[in-house]
Design a binder for these strands. Structure first.
Lengths: 133, 133
DNA sequence: GTATTTTTGCAAATTGTTCGCATTTGCTCG
DNA sequence: CGAGCAAATGCGAACAATTTGCAAAAATAC
């Protein structure tokens, strides 16, 4: 394991929300080239140390986000107000995926699911309850 | 409604699988510029006539795919062998989304879910059952 | 039919990501 | 411990999907 890959893996293992490639580069305090970060991420995902999904956000555009593959598979909510992620906890659609798999004869190797909207804070800020101010 | 937008909407309404921007341009036989196609898709999505999601595929890279917003909300499976989509039918995670929404105080305005792997055909082709040849 | 607003075409710019290639690093073995 | 080699990195250029500025063309309003 090279220095760059160790730093990249530490960045995503230590983050408590999905990180874009640039986010990883910022957190991984290896001063390595962005190409190296991309290659490291690709390597780590192939090796099973990381997972990724692509998300489009009004502020950051379309980017690929990486999360650690340690622990159970999880899903995320993306807030369109503060552009942060909220952890939705462990995956709850395993049963549904298995059902669809057998119903349709598919071999599912991965699934992507995420929600977006406004988190509790941004939601309260944009449409405060009566008497909240 | 302009000619270009009508053609773009007809393309996605008539397609039985999600279409990328270039796929829309190919199917919509308006010879309009690609910028127009992108703008029309953005407009149609904003106006509620189309939905989209971003998917990364080994053959086509990362692209945004559009589907008609007519009929019930659906989800898709993407085959990494033939790179086609399989319709998973109407959304079955509405309850889960509502649960997460109330559990975590979120305001969910959209959700993305798709599966990938090998479709029945590609699966059979790559690992035929005993006696299948 | 004319004025006003919106949309389109074209070409150039953006942006996330990938690639080629020479150099450096990590590891294996003697 | 140091030579030999395969794999990884840095740098810069290349890419591909998507967006944007602006003048011309088409909808729509009046």
């Amino acid at each position: 394991m090279t220095k760059a890959r160790i730093a990249v893996l530490a960045a995503i293992d230590g983050a408590e929300e999905p990180l874009s490639a640039s986010g990883v580069a910022a957190r991984a305090n290896c001063d390595c080239d962005q190409a190296t970060v991309y290659r490291a991420l690709h390597h780590l995902e192939t090796a099973g140390f990381a997972e990724s999904f692509v998300l489009n956000c009004s502020e950051h555009g379309t980017e690929r986000y990486y999360v650690s593959a340690k622990g159970p598979h999880r899903h995320w909510f993306h807030c369109e107000g503060c552009h942060r992620f909220v952890d939705l906890g462990a995956c709850r659609i395993g049963g549904l995926v298995a059902d669809l798999e057998s119903e349709l004869g598919l071999r599912v190797t991965r699934h992507t699911m995420y929600l977006s909207g406004l988190c509790a804070e941004c939601s309260a800020r944009s449409a405060p309850r009566a008497g909240a101010h």
